[in-house]
Design a protein around this nucleic acid. Structure first.
Lengths: 390, 390
DNA sequence: CTGAAAGCGCTTACAG
DNA sequence: CTGAAAGCGCTTACAG
């Protein structure tokens, strides 16, 4: 039934085709093929081997390097004729400005970095897409880095980003909250400042000890509270929570939201209604029975994430419980396909793409103001929640 | 039921905390606060404002800049004492080498770029994660770029990548196959070569007109054929296909796989068994009825992707068809959560992460050989496929 | 409007 | 082993 994972390699003959480039003179763009520019008309010096540079263009156009720089750098104050001549020379030689050299003079566009624990997962992709979109529209590149949750790797990446002079670093996703962690981040902030860069939190709240670091986040607490209120409105009095224990920004806020929602709606409140599960389907499947098999099982469950909720589906099903007749379930994230589960999952949808957009805009200084950003969430109601059984 | 999407902003007081950095002398790392290095002991020249540079370190250590470069660049041939002194000076001043300047001399680590149409979606994330992992392990950064399927944007991005001197560009995902497309790509290859960079295909086959561009792909054809064979083994004689029409590498290969699978297994073959749908749930939902409502509906469906398969679930359900009793369905991708549908989706799983790993390794020259790579897929059998009804 | 010169921060032969 | 010099490719005052 299960075909083996095999690996095969196919050989490909190395040869060259003759398709047409956009360049006026494709020959001039071929690298490491002897004197790049000089080869064509009036070579100067036998040294050059690399790509054609600004000086080559200047010589070819019969002007000074400074003039070429002005034309390409978009300065006004250039004679139209000169401009035309320079542009023609550049095109003819297939000149490509060296962004590295330009950056050294403070003129180049520095990249912005997207730093997260893991790249897999839906939430990451949407947020990164938002950030990339803003970066690209403004001529910047987006650097993608993952720490795999290892401090040492994180430290190494920040060091590399400092060396490469990233314009800004977006720290994305949940994080620790302890003093040691705050101090580590404070070190990054200082290191980045040294090279004229800065740190931004994205998809996580600010750190109390680090108020000068801006944060772009969505309303975890409000989202969960809306979920609890939704269940309360359906008549549920005993609502359980399945999610990670305190220790990270995301788990903390979502648990807070649950506790506040329970209090504000006057629902049953006791420790026995909370079960601990990390953010995976398997963990949700493992932890949910702790609630379902207890003495007074809840009639509804709020889950920290959709992953956990899917685990809860499994556990409910394994017990022959019908959703939502016997058990209502709410998730958080609105991941793909969860709407097509049976029944569709009611879940909180955060504006993942938008926090990426906002964070990038702030990172690039496209936005004024000196305030944190907190975006709202919306509740997507599907079939997994229903009236409490009479 | 649906809370409004609201946006609120919270003000944050700007202040500085006193956490401890790794630097020996944190004061020296504070930027733009007057003479960076000189401020502490014996200032030289009143000009410097930016970060401390190699010359500062040299002066501080009482050696020539060349010596500092040797120590930091990891050259042997340095007196241990000198080395120690230089290292101490660098640490004391909070020196961070300028990777841009280093890169200009051909010494720096150039980033590799991951270029795809859209960043959202599961397949992207897994592949990017693989590539990033390899890049990071080797001290490189991964640039993430999306074209949104627009040629103009693609062109612009390649230009920027040339300017920034990316080490290599991974073109990821399905693509066109026509002559115009091939010529556009050929232009990129040439432009990139100009700056010593190269192009690589990832998650797509090579282009016939461009055999010198290497490709790292998985076996689309073999994967689909395995799906068809699986259905044939269950007794199905009439197997339909729902997927995009020809015109892109991915749709072409998967359709090829279906046609070959049908032929090799001696199944019913006719145009009426193929329905066109782009890669979305909605498209699958729209196209599937074309098959189900026809005169001689198939007893099983092979879908181009999991998205399409989920759409097929919807269509089947809308008609009261039971899966797999009345209709078997197979997907492709093994996206998250599809295993938790009712029933779980039988689907082909490509090695997304691995193609990212392999592509990055080849891009960085970590692998010898001059051959394309084609990785195998595996079939994950779940509840959506069963014996044909008697 | 344009050129010659100095400078960005590093590395690498070339001589000691 | 170490230093002085030249060079990487660009930009920007500074003078015409």
């Amino acid at each position: 039934m299960r075909s083996p994972f095999r690996r095969s390699e196919t050989t490909v003959a190395a040869c060259t085709i003759g398709a047409v480039s956009d360049r006026a003179d494709p020959n001039a763009t071929i690298p490491a093929a002897g004197p790049a520019a000089g080869g064509r008309r009036g070579s100067r010096g036998p040294k050059k081997v690399g790509a054609v540079n600004l000086r080559d263009v200047a010589a070819h156009a019969g002007v000074a390097p400074a003039t070429v720089s002005r034309v390409l750098g978009g300065s006004r104050h250039v004679n139209p004729d000169t401009r035309t001549r320079v542009l023609a020379a550049a095109a003819e030689l297939g000149y490509v400005v060296n962004g590295l050299a330009r950056a050294m003079t403070g003129r180049g566009t520095r990249s912005i970095a997207f730093l997260t624990a893991e790249m897999a997962g839906f939430t990451f992709g949407a947020t990164a897409a938002g950030a990339e979109s803003v970066a690209a529209e403004n001529g910047h590149l987006l650097l993608l880095c993952t720490t795999h949750g290892r401090a040492e790797r994180e430290r190494q990446i920040i060091a590399t980003l400092c060396e490469q002079r990233a314009a800004a670093v977006l720290l994305v996703g949940s994080s620790g909250t302890d003093r040691l962690y705050t101090e580590r981040i404070a070190g990054y902030v200082r290191d980045l400042a040294t090279v004229g860069s800065k740190l931004l939190f994205c998809g996580r709240p600010g750190l109390p000890g680090l108020p000068e670091v801006r944060s772009v986040d969505y309303d975890h607490v409000g989202g969960i509270k809306a979920a609890v209120s939704h269940l309360a409105a359906l008549g549920h009095r005993s609502v359980g929570y399945v999610g990670a224990p305190r220790g990270g920004t995301m788990p903390d806020l979502r648990l807070d939201g649950y506790l506040m929602g329970v209090r504000e709606n006057g629902l049953e409140a006791r420790p026995g209604l909370v079960a601990h599960a990390q953010n995976t389907i398997e963990e949700g499947e493992r932890a949910t029975p702790l609630l379902l098999d207890a003495d007074r099982p809840p009639s509804a469950l709020v889950c920290m994430t959709d992953n956990v909720a899917v685990g809860a589906y499994r556990a409910a099903r394994a017990r022959g419980l019908r959703i939502p007749e016997d058990l209502s379930i709410v998730g958080f994230d609105d991941a793909p396909v969860v709407g097509d589960l049976t029944p569709g999952l009611t879940t909180v949808r955060p504006p993942f793409r938008q926090i990426g957009v906002d964070a990038a805009e702030i990172a690039l200084g496209l936005r004024d103001g000196d305030t944190d950003v907190l975006l709202g969430t919306s509740l997507t109601v599907r079939g997994s929640t229903g009236p409490v059984r009479a």
